Computed example of a mutant assay.
Amino acid sequence: MSPVRRLPVEEPGDRTRLPLAGDTPVCHYFEAGRCRSCTLIETPAAQQLRDKEERCRALLPGVPEQAWLPTVPGGVRDFRNKAKLVVGGRPGRVTLGILGPDGAGVDLRDCLIQQPAIRAMIPDLARFIEQTGLPPYDVPKRRGELKFVHVTVSPSEELMLRFVVRSAQALEVLRDRLPQLRRAVPAATVVSVNLLPEHKAVLEGEREELLLGSSLAMDTGAGFALHLRPQSFFQTNTGVARALYAQAAEWIGFAGPDSLWDLYCGVGGFALHCAGSVRSVLGVEISEEAVRSARRSAREAGITARFEAGDATAFALGSEEIPEAVIVNPPRRGIGGELAGWLEEAHGIRHVVYSSCNPESLAVDLAAMPSLAVREARVFDMFPHTRHLEVAVLLERR
């Protein structure tokens, strides 16, 4: 077979840069010891990429050297489309950022890895929260109301705001104050409140109440938008996500299957980007919220693709049909032995695209599929300044 055409290397998050010293960004929060989330921020960006490449090569020794495509960098600043802000401080003087070692809030409203539209609105959001009178949740004392605000920004700079609160009383306060919030943050097109009454180390509860809008439209550069509902997942680096979807679409176009399954499809990103070259496309995702988002995106884009809610492994093992190609994008634990075994034994599947956020679990899963050889592989620096990454491989039946 002819080689797969290689995508150009882009720098999606590097349009505006921090002051650099050997490609090392300056973070005053890190220097002051107030936040250590970006553990690699003192390592030059180019060295971060080399280290991630070497880590993937070491964990995946069966991948031929010539199979590795150039890494897609994620930028040094302005790349995060999502902020998970812990609400701390006290009524009238809140902090928005993270929790410190003592359980007190640490204000990080000027964190420069966030996209500018997020940074610009945080002072207005903080003033709105202070005006509501809702007390921030005090973790050590286990009292208070407002726990988090999750903020997501689209490429068009529209915002989705999700308030995580302890009680229905806080929900009603925010519902009553919605007109004030819309004046304070006019870019907010989706607003919801999530109830998390328990004292536990999680970011949200099960109950979600929409106050404004229904979904945020994420333009991925492919001529259509992916719709995100409040509890839907989307990659945190829009530029790198675009490159990842484009790479998968190119690999599937090269493989030329008649039928494609996108397992762990989320809001349908891979399925919808690949649908143009495949007759039959099916996405499977356990989150009904994400499936609703995927169906809306397909409908509005005029793309013929089906989406079903269900467990990916159970669906595959219980199906009488076998597609010619499969895309898997599992959580950090990987696809597991059952699904890997099914892919290994389903000889009608000629190609698999595996996108992984954990090269360790990817290595385990690849070892369970010896009949599928890695034809090409690529690292995507979805999470600059950390050890986390995304790595995708194109597998071909031997």
Rank of each mutant, 00 (worst) to 15 (best):
G341T: 08
V193K: 05
C35L: 08
V9D: 04
A243I: 04
L112M: 12
L394P: 00
T386Y: 02
V267C: 14
E53G: 06
T386A: 11
G92I: 12
A363D: 06
Y137H: 07
L49G: 00
L60R: 05
C38P: 05
P91E: 03
V284D: 01
V9H: 10
L366E: 00
E209C: 13
A67G: 11
L260W: 03
G13N: 09
C111M: 07
V352Y: 04
C111T: 03
I286R: 14
E345V: 12
G341M: 06
L226R: 11
E11L: 14
A309Y: 10
G103V: 04
L40F: 12
S361L: 03
V185H: 03
Q180P: 10
S192V: 04
L203A: 12
V240I: 10
T313N: 05
R143N: 06
A117N: 05
L108R: 01
S371P: 04
L59A: 05
Q48W: 09
F233C: 09
V9L: 13
H199D: 15
L260C: 00
G221E: 08
R387Q: 14
P91Q: 08
A104Q: 15
L146M: 13
R57L: 02
R142C: 13
R378P: 05
L40V: 09
L112T: 15
Y264H: 13
R6L: 14
T152S: 13
S37Q: 13
L394H: 13
V353N: 02
L317V: 12
A201R: 15
A314F: 02
H199L: 02
R162I: 15
L362A: 03
P123E: 11
E157F: 01
L108H: 07
E288K: 10
A126G: 06
A222Q: 13
T236L: 05
A32K: 12
G334W: 02
T24N: 02
G74H: 03
R5G: 13
P61S: 09
A241V: 10
L146I: 11
T236E: 12
S192N: 05
P330I: 00
P257Q: 07
I286Y: 10
A314P: 03
V63Q: 00
Y245V: 07
A117G: 11
R17T: 10
E360P: 03
T95G: 07
P19S: 09
D311E: 11
E289A: 14
V353H: 00
L18G: 11
A46P: 01
E324P: 08
V374W: 01
L228T: 09
A243P: 07
V164K: 01
A104V: 10
V374R: 11
I41S: 02
D219E: 05
Q180H: 14
T24R: 15
V139S: 01
E288C: 10
P101G: 01
V353Q: 02
H199Q: 08
N194C: 02
L366M: 06
A312W: 00
V291P: 03
F307T: 00
G337V: 14
Q247P: 00
D51P: 09
V153Y: 00
G105Q: 08
